[in-house]
């Protein structure tokens, strides 16, 4: 269900091209930041070593690499993938954790500043969609665990047969 994945075939091209390296702001300005190394390790099955590194959070998500890329793929997808794995294991930066918790709980990353709105003569903010958002995310969760159970059952049946 809607799961992210990484296209290794495209990444293999990336590891030989590197056209985006010269335009990536973090590559140019942050010492030690080199997504080319990360991509090589992902291809070689050695991604684990990057999960605790600061590097994978230094991609600015400016999408410059996507625009330079002949395949429209680029560094960013590799970084996004490693961030997602790091987050699954609870290795994401505290601020990302706080942001995610706020998002999951309220459907927003902050509530409208009401006293300041009054001061500037702004109208009442429109109603948010938090309730419906939470319902939708509960449905997503349910669907996921249903899928997971199916997978386990299929595995079990296969084991029984053999």
């Amino acid at each position: 269900m809607l799961e992210a994945n990484l296209n290794i075939r495209l990444l293999e091209q990336c590891s030989r091209c590197e056209a985006c390296y010269s335009i990536c702001p973090s590559c140019r300005h942050l010492p030690g930041y080199d997504p080319r190394e990360v991509i090589k390790d992902i291809i070689a099955g050695r991604f684990e070593k990057w999960l605790r590194s600061k590097s994978i959070w230094q991609c600015l998500e400016c999408h410059y690499c996507l625009e330079m890329c002949y395949q429209h793929y680029g560094f960013e997808n590799a970084m996004t993938a490693l961030r997602a794995v790091a987050a699954k294991r609870g290795l994401h930066p505290p601020q990302v954790k706080r942001g995610w918790d706020m998002f999951a709980k309220t459907g927003r990353l902050g509530e409208p500043a009401l006293p300041a709105r009054k001061k500037f003569g702004l109208p009442e903010p429109a109603a948010g969609g938090a309730e419906e958002f939470k319902k939708l995310h509960a449905l997503l969760k349910a669907k996921r665990s249903e899928k997971e159970n199916e997978k386990q059952r299929a595995k079990g049946q296969k084991a029984e047969r053999t």
Binding site: E61, A84, V96
Partner: peptide, 25 residues
């Protein structure tokens, strides 16, 4: 102004943690 909007959602906080939640929101 219309009612019902939530966070867009923000890419670096949401998509990096859960792609499905990003897309759905």
């Amino acid at each position: 102004d219309i009612d019902g909007f939530t966070c867009c959602p923000e890419k670096s906080l949401v998509n990096n943690v859960d792609h499905a939640a990003f897309t759905l929101t």
